[in-house]
Amino acid sequence: MHLAELLASSFRMAIPILLTALGAVYSERSGVVNIGLEGMMIVGSFWGALGSYFYGPYVGFLVAMLAGIVLAIIHAIASVTFKVDQIVSGVALNILAYGSSRFMSQAIFKMATTTPHVAGLVKINIPGADSVPYLKPLLTGISPIIIITILLVPISEFIINRTVFGLRLRAVGENPLAADTLGVNVFRMKYAGVLISGMLAGLAGAYLAMEHTGMYVEGMTQGKGYIALAAMIFGNWTPSGALMASLLFGFAESLSFRVVENSFIPYQFIKMIPYMLTLIVLAGFVRKSTPPAADGVPYERNAG
């Protein structure tokens, strides 16, 4: 197996995790824990496939992001407006995403668990890549989503650290009461954080369905939403940290695919690698990272 191939595959595997982890950064920096990312990925993958099936890939991605946003709005209404337990709300969304995707798939395609094959975006080839033998897998057949995702890392760093929006987002996640007294609209910022996370998770789901597999398959997210959360924690709630962590997880996953091809170890155990890695990473690093001070705490104006 070529190293370049493994790298290219790690990269592709990292993209959905990274996109979702970036979303998680926005949501958690605003103080909202979003366990519902998994569900947002699921609806993204189903609606992305649906949109692409009927109207082509561009519409597919748009519809997927919209689907993620719709779920995010429910999460925001429940956990920001009504201040219910953010984890309970997130878990309910995951169930909703699972059930509604099955339902819609059954209703529209008469199959509960898959859609027909759908088109993805036109792939990009770096000119002249054919002449570089070793780097060919890295430089050809690149989905535009990969490029967008990579660009989103520095963009997110800039937004979170340098803009007014970012300062306020962070303030709301650290001390919402202080932000409120200074005229920052706490609820709007939290909604923004959650909605961005829904949009990116939806996009990540669509990437899985359209760019990676070419169709929607039930359970195709395989817990990547949760892994993305772990990646965000591992990356210490920063976009660039999330990039590094996602690459690690992407590598683990692509490794597991490669090993399956020729190995004595039962493939079920190989399949566990990303989940084991998540546990190990969290066990080793979670104490060393610092979440936003008011992460997961609903903001009640008259609580003081």
Binding site: F82, A92, F103
Partner: peptide, 22 residues
């Protein structure tokens, strides 16, 4: 589709927590 029940369940979780809170 039987999956209506799954949707119903998820919606019940969200509504019960919101209603209990209120």
């Amino acid at each position: 589709p039987m999956d209506t029940v799954i949707i119903l369940q998820a919606l019940m979780i969200i509504s019960i927590v919101i209603i209990t809170k209120v």
